[in-house]
Amino acid sequence: MTATSTEGVAPKQITIEVMGKFYQVPEGLTMLQAMWHTGHELTRGVGCLGGICGACSATYRTKDSIKIKSTLACQTLIEDGMSFSLVHTYYPNRKIPYDFKEMEDPKQDLFRYYPEAALCRNCNTCTLACPKGIDVRAAVWKAVFGDFEECAEHFMPCVMCSLCVPVCIADIAPNQVGVFVRRAQGIFFENKSPQLKNRVDEIEKGVYDQEWERVLNLSDAQLLAD
């Protein structure tokens, strides 16, 4: 059993170009499956295989197009004449450590850690690069204008693939801004849950101790009936 199992009807063969070499492969495979099919050993460039970890960022060009696009290789079906490569080396991203406990106004602190966020020149390449369809440019502007709620909403599906980072002409790391804003929104601006607090308090006070005492002394048969 392999991820590229193709028993049954013989699928149509198509030609693809992987990192400058041409291969004949059956259609219906994702880019990663096509790489395995053509004998590529992969360690870097594969993670979840479900489109959610961002390890498999890739660039590609379709037949007769001049445009180079970016995508997630585990989620993209190959097509005839497609040329692609994984961007699986490594992004030398910068990560600035911060501690929310030391912050009072994260909407201002954003500029302490990510001053370049305010310098967006609206080129929109980040949005075009995003394989999850996030309106990255709009989200960054929301962050800059202090609308953390909206920004957080935009970045919900962000898989941190970093494809938006090297394309930014203002040197913004939009995905990092997204994480900062989402966490800040969660910590500072979301409502508290009264039920959760109650339950934590109840458990601490031992409200369930008696019930535990009873339940833990039951036999399996009694437990099933309980």
């Binding site: 009264p194 339950r199 535990w212």
Partner: peptide, 29 residues
């Protein structure tokens, strides 16, 4: 038993660290 008893406080820890669980209008999870 330990899992279910420590569950609520670990969820609280996650929220305090910025995990945005879906909420009801009244703020409850």
């Amino acid at each position: 038993k330990t899992l279910v008893e420590e569950g609520p406080s670990v969820v609280k820890w996650l929220i305090d660290n910025g995990v945005m669980f879906d909420r009801e209008e009244d703020g409850n999870l």
